[in-house]
Structures are given as C-alpha cells and as structure tokens.
Amino acid sequence: MKTTKTIIAWMEDKPGVLARVASMIRRRNYNVVSLAVAPTETPAISRMTAVLECDASQEKLVGLQLRKLVNVTNVVTDLTPDKAIFRELALIKVNADASKRSEVIHLAEVFRGQVVDVGPQTLTIEATGTQDKIDSLIELLKPFGVREVARTGPVAMLRGTANGRGISGNGRKAEQ
C-alpha cells in the first residue's frame, strides 16, 4: 500500500480556489485520497483537510506548493496522531432484514455508531472515528452485505493549544 499524508490548508473562500488547489495537486503528480472542505470560525476562510498519496519529502513539497497559491493563507503538514486528532464520518447502508437487525445494531453500538435510517431490508449506520475504525466497522459489516458507503474523508485538528500556524509565507515553519 502506498503511504498517505494528511495536510491541512486554510484558504480564502473565493470562487475557483478549490479548483486551483486540485489543479496544482494534479499537475504536480500527486494522487488525492480524500478532500474535506468547509467554512471555519473565521469568516471568508475555508479549511481543507487533504489526504494525499505521498512520502514525507513529497509532503513537504506539496505543502510549499499549496502555500504558494495566492488564496491559500496557511498550510500545516507533518501531522501525526501524537500531534493531531483525525476524525471521519461515514454513512453505511447494510442489508438487515428483521432477522439480522439486532445483530447489526449491536455491532454499530460497539463502534459507537448510530442507526440513522431503518427500512424493511436495510439499516443505515452513522459512524465517526479514525479512518482505521471506519475501515474495521465496514469490514465487520461486509458479511451482512454493505450496499452503499458514503465517507467524508478525515478532518484533522492539532491537539492542545497549537493553532496550526504552519508554513508561513516565507516558507519557514513557524511555531506550532
């Protein structure tokens, strides 16, 4: 399996900014595993968590290239579980008629998942957690028949008071 790296970038909420980010990543020959983009606590600034297939030195370069985009205001790379928390949300629709329902619900509870939709033939489970946790849940649900999975891709946040002042405009790593 290829190694992946998670990068956080803050960007001005302007038309075309996401296209610029995606265009740069594609042009520099990186593969995107997931992208999660949404507004932040700061008006007009969006936050992106990107998971890319790359090694550590490539991660540094892609971070610098990202930072170079005029509308990108900040980038944090080098995220590890000891420095940051990672969470992903998944909706998993599983085959579960009346005979299997309680078994599936029990599994979901073990993973602190919630049942958010019940149909005659299916259950839909909402689960949050690290990528690994979601992967395991899906794996365990497979024998019942997983019909559909929608995952957000992880979002990440630095632990403690670190505020994510990552790569400054002059390319130096600022205090985290």
Binding site: L61, L64, Q65, K68, N170, G171
Partner: peptide
Amino acid sequence: IDPAEIGKNVEPDLAVVG
C-alpha cells in the same frame, strides 16, 4: 525567493529563502 524550489530537484546542504 521561492520556498517551493528548495529541495524540489536537488536537496541543498543549506537553503536561504529570500
């Protein structure tokens, strides 16, 4: 002047961005 050039093709022993 471009931080993204540092280490892109050749890893230097010392880089001065400016």
